[in-house]
Computed example of a mutant assay.
Amino acid sequence: MWFTQEKLPLGKYIAQYVEWLTQHGASVFDSISLSLAGIITVFTNALCWFNPWALIVIFALLAYYIQRKVSLTLFVAFSFLLIFNLGYWQETMETLAQVTLATLVCVIVGVPLGIIAAHRPWFYTVLRPVLDLMQTVPTFVYLIPTLTLFGLGVVPGLISTVVFAIAAPIRLTYLGICDVPEELMDAGKAFGCSRRQLLARIELPHAMPSIAAGVTQCIMLSLSMAVIAALVGADGLGKPVVNALNTADIAMGFEAGLAIVLLAITLDRICKQRETVKRGDA
């Protein structure tokens, strides 16, 4: 058909651009890769430095301190004891370090972007299609250029995780700020609050439940990338899942998958309880 004979070379242009970046920015990308890999190594070594028994107690006490529920505290202790018993403690700590770092990056970048978008509608108009693209494009598509630029290892998996998960805190921060009642804003202005004081004393406290939900979503999305990150050389619970898939090892696949599920449920329940407590206090 005549319409498809002359194909638009979009993929060719993207490939040329990535090749240009690889040739002219290799030192920059190598520095970024070494820095991020070093940070992840520090996170992982810090978690693995603790005795597993002591760390299980710390996690259980932290869960009780946050949400004050004995049942959830026992579930957290049981989950980590089961992971320890199955022999996936090291992989779980590696995954937890990657998820923690990815979530920190998403929150540090995403929350300010959400605030700016809520205060400047034109910025959100520009940002929204970018967020739609980041959430809908299959992760393997942007995993290819990150793999080309940063090489095998945990770094391309981490960057892909951030790209995939950062939309959640941006959108929910934007929604939380936009949902602040006009009456509260008018009252603050009547008392002479500056724009910074309105943000710190009215907008952020009112939007905090939405921001907390964005953080929870970010954690879950980051955990969902564990297996995909393992395909490009990242350590963690995704690696035994990939190995089980390659060797058709049902036992290994089930145990590693169960460890991911337990870690996800534990983090989700702790964060949701924190959100509920704050809503009740308000």
Rank of each mutant, 00 (worst) to 15 (best):
M1N: 13
F3Y: 14
T4H: 12
L8I: 15
Y13G: 07
I14A: 14
Q16E: 11
G25C: 12
V28N: 14
F29E: 09
L36M: 10
I39C: 04
L47I: 02
W49G: 01
N51D: 08
W53I: 11
I56K: 01
I58Y: 06
L61D: 04
A63I: 05
R68N: 09
K69G: 10
S71P: 09
L72H: 10
L74H: 05
F75H: 05
V76C: 00
F78C: 14
S79D: 10
Q90P: 05
T95Y: 02
V105E: 02
V105F: 06
V107T: 08
V109D: 09
V109T: 10
P112E: 06
P112L: 06
I116F: 14
A117F: 02
P121H: 05
W122K: 14
T125Q: 14
D132Y: 10
T136Y: 05
I144P: 04
L149R: 12
G153C: 00
L158G: 01
I159C: 08
V162H: 03
I170N: 01
R171C: 08
E182V: 12
A187P: 03
G188L: 10
R195D: 13
R195W: 09
L199K: 07
A200Q: 11
R201V: 12
P205S: 07
H206N: 14
S210V: 09
A212F: 12
T216S: 11
T216R: 14
I219Y: 05
L223P: 09
M225E: 10
A226H: 04
A226F: 04
A229G: 11
G236A: 04
V241L: 13
N243G: 09
N243S: 15
A248W: 14
G253T: 08
A256H: 01
I260M: 15
D268T: 14
V277T: 14
R279T: 12
